[in-house]
Write a protein that binds this DNA or RNA. Sequence first.
DNA 1: TTGTAGGCGTTATCAA
DNA 2: TTGATAACGCCTACAA
Lengths: 328, 328
Amino acid sequence: MEKVTIATVARRAGVSRQTVSNVLNTPDVVREETRERVREAIAELGYRVNQAARQMRTGRSRLIAVRIEPANDGINGSVLDRFLHGLTDAAGLAGYRVMLYTAAGDDDEIATYEELLSAYDLDAFVLTSTHHGDPRTSWLAGRDIPFVTFGRPWGAPDTHSWVDVDNASGTTAATERLLATGHRRIGFLGWPAGSGVGDARREGWARALGAAHLLGSSAGVEDGVDTGAAAARGLLAAEPDTTALVCASDSLALGALEAAREMGRDCAVIGFDDTAVARAIGLTSVSQPLAEAAGRCMDLLRELLDGRAPSAPTHVLLPPSLVLRQTA
Amino acid sequence: MEKVTIATVARRAGVSRQTVSNVLNTPDVVREETRERVREAIAELGYRVNQAARQMRTGRSRLIAVRIEPANDGINGSVLDRFLHGLTDAAGLAGYRVMLYTAAGDDDEIATYEELLSAYDLDAFVLTSTHHGDPRTSWLAGRDIPFVTFGRPWGAPDTHSWVDVDNASGTTAATERLLATGHRRIGFLGWPAGSGVGDARREGWARALGAAHLLGSSAGVEDGVDTGAAAARGLLAAEPDTTALVCASDSLALGALEAAREMGRDCAVIGFDDTAVARAIGLTSVSQPLAEAAGRCMDLLRELLDGRAPSAPTHVLLPPSLVLRQTA
DNA sequence: TTGTAGGCGTTATCAA
DNA sequence: TTGATAACGCCTACAA
């Protein structure tokens, strides 16, 4: 298979290279008849624009970079995986490709930005795992590099576009489900105060209980099955009439189930993230719409990249959904 | 920040552009003193070669493509995730970058190859999830496109390089562990015969038992927690003296644990893949060395890409390891 | 050992 | 509406 360039197409269609380029990039400037002839030639020859050459002229690569993190030590690791798949799909539909990189910490990641930008002319970045005092966003913003975060900028000003999942509404839905099935004493098993996500999840539970004029106790521990089990034991022992637990993660929920079983307590449990573990053991869990989140990230990116960016940054908050299984 | 090109560096170092290029690509041809001067200029200016320009000249992109699959409906989905992370790391070290794509089936994937090759000049592909009658390898091989598979070519001739994990040795190790801890009646819970991976895992168990002059029963069912539980119930009921079960997956193992608990049987269980679920519930499991597999894939790719490919394709078979937890 | 010339495939500019 | 020309940054061939 010979290399088919714009010149091959031009020859076949009997026009100049420039006309072919116009058909590709500004079709409306070419006479209809010519346009058709060129399109036929393109189809017959199976021509595809060469990104490298285009990139050299335009300075744009149609490449988007995302960091792939080490599969978290645990149970919640597949979240990024699913997001990545969705992003790759959405990017492909928009004519972009996703490039992966790894980084050991924020500074290393910023060094990687420099490398990717100067070597590959990356068009944009999608950041995940945003956190308090995140230096990455200000670095990118300071250089006017298009980016979107999946996760809101905790504690920082909302100066860029982001997509996030409404954590509070997830635990609210979980709590309401438990209320609807007759539970009246519903505890919350979460993380220590201070993490944006964790606080939001606790808040959602508290709000739903408040709306029903009920009270509930909560515990905050580091994420993990064992820590969850220990905390649940404490909670259940202190509150003999607690019949349900809303948890900030599937790990904690798994621990809670263990504790309840050991104690011979009948206790409904709802986790968060709908991980493989939840699916495997039949744990009812709050599921994040990851494919949609990825799609929205791509939408925002396209706005940025096509120059038709809105004057103000856009923020998208997606509602999670409750996946009912055996535990609640 | 101005754009720094090879010309900027040349000016700064007081040499020609060609000399800079030589320092980059064939350093040994440049006098030491000149080389140093150029290197200093490069460092001072923060120069980085522009991949697009290089690619236009050389036809090589330093890009490697991998398909990201939808997070499997189950418990074993994180395997690809960890492999991807390892591959991204290894590629980065070797000066390559990983590009992602999705595909709905083999034919769609082949269409994507064409697109990626002609548009982005991809240097190589890493294929995962090889299977019987896989059309992808022959397509790539027929066009002399460098590729490596993670997973051997089941049922097809070994005409390309691949990396795989020695499944049989994994279940052998699991079985030997059980033998060493005193178990004498050890069953196997696997998949229906016919899948290369599943057959190998069963074979490893049978081999270890044979070496100890023991016998054991096995069952073959579709992967899943419920199917595993049902099969384990059958196995344990039929063989009252069975005290341990080696399983072809963590899903099956989870089912086996459930069954044993229900039946009040004390039964050691070992799973396969060391998934998040295994870590979460303390399941002893056979772990695939995914980071190493990724590194070896990259090594093979480099051989192919550097033209120093061995005359015959290379095959790498890596031993998995047993991760001991509470269940065995 | 170093420098000069040309071209990779595309698009922007400008002229026809 | 179409076409000629130059330029993006780099590398290979060849000349000095």
